[in-house]
């Protein structure tokens, strides 16, 4: 980790600082999200605001950093605002959606909105799979269609937000370069 590497983010110190800011920002989003009821008829659906951080982070930080930011965020926010159960759900969703989004960012032709939608959908799939494993009921598959569409919608919202913010983030980063 500590190896000084040429990266678009500049010095290692700067990179670590950016990581820290992103974790803090993601935590904030997770916290704010606990106030936002997002009722889709199925319990547990969230907007996924913290995904904004992953989405934007992937555009200017090494993937490993963003992954760590995401994992740290999930760990901390589950400890602070959730419970052990929610940790497993979030972890599964977080890992799956990160992998999916990371792969898409490396390919041409997907905008932030598309990447975010894919991330949202994979996040929900990860959660249902964990839930099905833990509760040992296949009945949960019945929620899958709703959760897929929900992931699409929340993903699109978060993606649109990210698109709005993108130019500003870029500017901010340049002003520090």
């Amino acid at each position: 980790m500590a190896v000084a590497r040429k990266s678009p983010t500049g010095t290692p110190g700067r990179r670590v600082a950016l990581d820290g800011i992103l974790v803090a920002l993601a935590m904030l989003f997770s916290y704010i999200e606990t106030f936002i009821p997002f009722n889709f008829g199925v319990p547990g659906i969230k907007l996924g605001l913290a995904n904004l951080v992953v989405l934007l982070g992937l555009t200017f930080l090494p993937a490993l950093d963003v992954f760590l930011v995401s994992m740290v965020r999930i760990l901390l926010s589950s400890l602070l605002f959730g419970n052990v159960m929610s940790l497993w759900y979030s972890l599964a969703g977080g890992i799956l959606s990160f992998l999916c989004m990371w792969l898409l960012t490396r390919r041409e032709g997907y905008s932030l909105i598309g990447i975010s939608m894919a991330g949202g959908v994979m996040h929900n799939i990860g959660q249902v799979l964990t839930a099905a494993l833990i509760v040992q009921t296949i009945q949960l598959a019945g929620y899958l269609p709703v959760l897929l569409v929900a992931g699409l919608v929340t993903g699109a919202i978060v993606g649109a937000l990210a698109k709005l913010l993108m130019p500003r983030v870029q500017k901010a980063l340049e002003s520090y370069a």
Binding site: G114, M117, V121, L144
Partner: peptide, 16 residues
């Protein structure tokens, strides 16, 4: 949004 975004959305909706 780009073309491939719609592909994702379409694929998910189809799956659902």
């Amino acid at each position: 949004m780009k073309k491939k975004d719609f592909l994702i959305a379409g694929a998910v909706l189809l799956l659902a």
